[in-house]
Design a protein around this nucleic acid. Structure first.
Lengths: 186, 186
DNA sequence: ACATTTGTAGACTGATTAGTCAATCATTGT
DNA sequence: ACAATGATTGACTAATCAGTCTACAAATGT
């Protein structure tokens, strides 16, 4: 078993349930079934663990977002695929997605360098920029477009999480909300 | 001077800057210029302080949202007034708005009873429901509409905070983004 | 075979924390 | 004037926390 992975998994679960403030490293180690010192062997400080967890989780999401996105399709279809993938991942990994939001809306986010943030957003911004250039997307500032899309997704995810929808109903909502978003930005 | 108010003000500032985990009550008391015991005189526990701060801040926002909203105007104008008010408040009270988001995306939010949350959202949902009934807003589920609007506002606020815009430019962005939202939901 | 690095353990520590307490001080009502 | 209640203080405590340390085990390279 991979202890490093185990630590991240446990930390995620506890941070989401109790928050950063109420999740001691000792509790993480205990629940992960390892010794206290082992945790600090892999992560020098608690902050480092939190940052690593964020980077790890965020990259898992990003990876999933672009899955099955063949470049042959129309921009709309590629965009819809990314949109759908993101929401699907969020629904299937609720704790992970929640953690990303929790982290992003906390002072920890300030520990990430602006360069890193820019680097993370780059592919998405490039994609949107291409859409604008191709006159498919409205000529809005890309940053604005990006933020608008992100928050739309966060909103729909929140809505989907607020009630128990059947899979069919979920798909319907995702399709409908995509159309709303698409009409808004094209 | 009102000590209770002073405590909230200081706590807000510190929570936003350092987070819940890294803001000891002793620091709050010190920075607020009061004794340690005084803080616990007004708020029995740290959690109680955090919850009170959220309730206080949230109600200040809600109050401002509906300011100058005369019932005589068209639904669009009233809606736009609420929209504009909210973003203006968020921009003029960045720490407060950020705190609301920080709190909402943390396990503390779970300490608020579902009834309280429902009660808070009630007026907004009623307003939207009326808009649907009047066939002005699309017949989407109100909860969905509500979440969509909320996240849209959060997004625009984030965009406005990401750069330094002139007041004129800001107003232009708010008008434009309102139009995007309005077209989406009507 | 042996040496060196890397992983793992868990008792331990120094610092910090939320919250208490007993003692004053201020305000109010009678 | 005088209770009585509430406000304020800051030293104090018991618990907890992040992180260290020493010792040992496993793996890896030579």
């Amino acid at each position: 078993m991979d202890k490093k992975e185990e630590i991240l998994k446990t930390a995620l679960k506890l941070f989401v349930e109790f928050g950063f403030h109420a999740t001691p490293t000792s509790k993480i180690a205990k629940e992960a079934g390892i010794a206290n010192g082992t945790l600090f062997h892999y992560y020098k400080t608690k902050d480092e663990l939190i940052l690593a967890l964020y980077a790890h989780t965020k990259s898992r999401l990003t990876e999933y977002m672009y899955a099955n996105a063949s470049k042959d399709e129309s921009l709309e279809l590629v965009f819809k695929s990314i949109y759908t993938n993101t929401i699907e991942w969020a629904q299937e990994n609720k704790a992970e997605f929640y953690f990303i939001q929790q982290f992003s809306t906390s002072p920890f986010y300030g520990l990430i360098s602006p360069e890193e943030i820019t680097k993370q957003a780059k592919p998405h911004l490039d994609f949107l920029q291409a859409g604008i250039k191709a006159a498919v997307l409205k000529p809005l500032p890309v940053d604005m477009l990006y933020t608008l899309i992100n928050s739309h997704i966060a909103g729909i995810n929140q809505y989907l999480s607020s009630e128990e929808f059947s899979t069919a109903k979920q798909k319907k909502i995702i399709n409908e909300s995509f159309q709303l978003l698409w009409d808004m930005i094209t």
